[in-house]
Amino acid sequence: MKKLWDTFFNGIINENPTLRLVIGMCAPLAVTTAVANGFWMGIAVIFVLTASNILISALRKIIPEQIRIPIFVVIIATFTTVADLSLKAIQPDIHAKLGVFVPLIVVNCIIFARAEAFASKNNVLLSTVDGLGMGLGFTLALIVLATIRELLGNGSWWGIKLLPASFEPAIVMILPPGAFVTLGYLLGGLNLLTGKTGEN
């Protein structure tokens, strides 16, 4: 049981894919102009990540070593397509705003990295928990980033005006510079809190 919890929280905290490992950065920067976009992107990633982890883990003993990579790609691409079409049906407006970033989940390094490093080596239960933890870590990172950007750039959270009318939103926050600079300082702030330093 402890191992399950450790695996789960590993993806959210220690190895948060976006905030600690800094992989698969396109979507977190691109879709966090509004909290709702970040949330639905996160849901799509949780689904693809968990589903491919489960299937790859279940098939790990029968997938031949040499052709495992193409097989992983096909599995991930299939679930990405399922996520893409489902989101289009449930949330057509959000789906349109996310644009190519939903199909692009297929090339998101996080999914492939978990398939290769975790699901192909661990049992189904553990791989499920790993997928959920990593996906949730990704989703939380997007929500944090989107909260800062939507609040400062539009004065709202999930479309609800939170800041008083006298607050004049800084439009730049929902433009590309706002994404890069905010995430840069967010990562720097986390490094400061955890005492981690990087190389130049």
């Binding site: 004049e168 800084a170 439009i171 730049v172 926050m173 433009l175 510079p177």
Partner: peptide, 9 residues
């Protein structure tokens, strides 16, 4: 340029 993008008004 940052200010111009943030508060064009």
């Amino acid at each position: 340029a940052f200010l111009l993008a943030a508060w064009p008004q």
